[in-house]
Design a protein around this nucleic acid. Sequence first.
DNA 1: TTGTAGGCGTTATCAT
DNA 2: ATGATAACGCCTACAA
Lengths: 340, 340
Amino acid sequence: MARISMEDVAERAGVSITTVSRVLNNTNHPVSEKTRKKVMKVIQELDYKPDISAQSLRQSFNNIIALITRDISDPYFGEMARGVTETANKYGILTFVCNTGRNPENEIQYHELLWQHRVRGIILGGGGLNLEAYKIKLQEQMNRYKDNGHKIVSLAPQGFDMDYVMIDNRGTGELITDYLIARGHTSIAYISGPQNTYTAFDRLEGYKLCLKKHNLPYDDLMIAYSDNSWKGGYEAANILLDRSIKFTGICCGNDNLAVGALRAFKERGLAVPEDVSVISIGDLPNANYTAPPLTTVRVPLYEMGAKAVNIIMSDDTQEYNANIIFKTVISERQSVSNIK
Amino acid sequence: MARISMEDVAERAGVSITTVSRVLNNTNHPVSEKTRKKVMKVIQELDYKPDISAQSLRQSFNNIIALITRDISDPYFGEMARGVTETANKYGILTFVCNTGRNPENEIQYHELLWQHRVRGIILGGGGLNLEAYKIKLQEQMNRYKDNGHKIVSLAPQGFDMDYVMIDNRGTGELITDYLIARGHTSIAYISGPQNTYTAFDRLEGYKLCLKKHNLPYDDLMIAYSDNSWKGGYEAANILLDRSIKFTGICCGNDNLAVGALRAFKERGLAVPEDVSVISIGDLPNANYTAPPLTTVRVPLYEMGAKAVNIIMSDDTQEYNANIIFKTVISERQSVSNIK
DNA sequence: TTGTAGGCGTTATCAT
DNA sequence: ATGATAACGCCTACAA
């Protein structure tokens, strides 16, 4: 059962390949109903499917999009990937998932490869890194894509101007801080992701802003930095607990950090939310299954991924150029208490 | 900055495109050191990269592999995807992640698309479904691929003969049951994934076998079925607790189910492991961050994914035909107690 | 050691 | 309404 081409179809239907192409692509060019039916029938019989390599060689774009993730085993990117791949599938297009393992060099390399593949569009899953050399190189790549009509959409701030579908990270940092303050907390610690990522930076900025707004003192000792992992959250929480500070509430830059912190608190004999309230950002599916269930901000990762695909597939330049911010809302569960 | 082709390179270097191709692909065909250097230099200057669509049209395979997952937001598939994509990247090839959302029709559709893309190999991430129509269709696709020299590797049992990299699911089901029995448990419940998936079926078989081996009675009421989600585990645990049965230990077909069960037990005021011991299969990264940390079997998903890619990329037919079983080992943590 | 030419499977332009 | 033909960019006999 070898591969069959248009030629096979044409031959069997007794028409030219041109005609086959025409019925297949539903072009304006007129084709008699009779031949159309005949060709369709043969296509069915032979189970013919056009070869995509040939198509994209001829046209100059592909029916492929790419999603760049930092760690696809992290449910954060997983949820995003689900939104992207499932939406792409609706358009009949396939998705390259490019996992960088948080290595900027890998990311640049991926862009070279994607360029070679002439992918139709690229979705940047992770937030930008504030490293000058990396940013310059990345921007170069972005421009090359754009100049050739490929579309790029980011799902997190990159530190330079481009099209995006995001949440308001700073605003969300404010939101969670405000939530604790509104419940009587005045000593609030913070576990942040890496400060060279814009996402983590912006969220922490929101926290700082919120304290200032409420005339609460800001203290560097109340902040611990880590990567975005469970382990990182666990370690950061321990660092905070080892410092000579007191806090009744803690904001975590994302759910993973909160999960790690939860374990640290438990080990130290601190009850959540009785002794310390925990709030974070993410609302990943398992936030419902921590002990206690986590109060956290829902980030519509699936919808963001889906939207990015829609933008890439849309011919509407206006929509493309629109920068989109998704609203965030707190999912109230049981990790925050009211103190009086 | 338009796309540049071999022709551009050839022209600028003052040679034919054949020569360019030869230096690029390092063929046996002799090329003088001088021209080689000259061509290389121009390639650098122009930053030329071969067009992959053209390459794969000419050759009859691609530098693309595909991974079929059921739910990419589930860390189980996430970890697998990480192994696959990162290993693929080492070979300089890209990975389509095809998420079926557990819909068999989607899976079949994906195979059509992958066929059109002439992907070099396909990795079946999820276990087979025991549905006759689906199995027949799938096998048809598999044969088409094979007949055309594409490679297919499965990471879970499919219910028919094919190349695979797996764990021994039945053996692992036995392993966890044995573990509880060895610690004095004689009333052991079981939460299983869907019975029409071979993976879940085999694991449960292992449990049954193990009971028989130890002359322990088997009781249908001790089994609850669900999907493989947190929610499913939560619900299944509640169902078991509502029945008129007693158990001191419970085996969960996978980590997600265990996480859900943990929450159900907590809500019902049952302490783990004091009142009920929990063991499962998976050892996903967050098994360390449940309360209490989960005793569970490590399934080397990353390594399995990596191995599958190596097999696909290998020219060694022998290795290809070898069916590979990875060993599983229990990660002992704190969710199982010894009862006397 | 280098180059010429044909073809991979499409689509699009131009005739008929 | 239909068809011949030239690309798209690359690889590879076959010639020179």
